[in-house]
Each structure stands twice: as C-alpha cells, then as structure tokens.
C-alpha cells in the first residue's frame, strides 16, 4: 500500500490533462468552432496513437508478437468481440513463446 509522491504527482497530472480534454473541449469548442483542418487532425489521432504504440512493440517482440497480432486481428474481424481479440491473441503469443 505504498504511495510515492512522484507517482501521485504523475497521476494527478494525468487526471488534470484528461479532465482538461473532457471538460475543456466542451467549453472551448462550443464557443469557437474548430476549423475543418483541426477537426480532421483530431479525427486521425486515435488511429495514430494505437499504431504508434503497437508498431515498435511488435518489432521488439518478434515472432510471438506477430503471430499474436495476426490472431487478434482475425479474432476481432470475425467476432467483433474485444474479449475474444484480447484472449485469443494473448493465448497465441503465449503458445508461440512457450514453444520456442
């Protein structure tokens, strides 16, 4: 049950940044209309974040991760279920990791 001051500070910074997006976005963009360009940039950000997270991790993780990624995509495309995607993808990675 430890709580480091630096960790608490980082958590509070994350809380402030996140709430600034939730509440600040509403307060700001109901007063000034975002330009179509800004709107377009913001719409591409989620895909950009997820690709940025996934790509270096896959390159670093090697074969088990690639097989896991392919399994996740297949499971997700077929079932559209987050549970199936996470579970089957992780199971495939684990299996390849054990077999190597």
């Amino acid at each position: 049950m430890s709580l480091s001051l630096a960790t608490l500070g980082a958590i509070l910074a994350m809380m402030a940044a996140t709430y600034a997006c939730r509440a600040g976005g509403y307060l700001l963009f109901t007063r000034i209309r975002p330009t179509p360009f800004l709107r377009s940039v913001l719409a591409y950000i989620p895909g950009g974040i997820f690709m940025s997270y996934v790509t270096p991790a896959l390159v670093h993780g090697g074969l088990p991760s690639w097989i896991g990624a392919a399994t996740t995509i297949a499971a997700m495309a077929i079932t559209r279920s987050l549970v199936a995607g996470i579970f089957l993808g992780t199971a495939a990675t684990w299996a390849v990791w054990l077999l190597r």
Binding site: S4, T7, A10, A17, T18, C21, P34, P46
Partner: peptide
C-alpha cells in the same frame, strides 16, 4: 521511478485529445 509528471501528463493529454471533440 520516480515518475515524470510532465511525460505522463503530456501523454494523457495527446491520447485524450479525441475527448475534446466529443463534449461539444
């Protein structure tokens, strides 16, 4: 460890920018 409030806060801000468009 120790955690960086700047790095964590900035990462949270960029990842959550999409929320700024949802409220309006």
């Amino acid at each position: 460890h120790p955690a960086s409030a700047l790095a964590a806060g900035f990462a949270a801000f960029v990842v959550n920018l999409r929320l700024a468009l949802m409220g309006p």
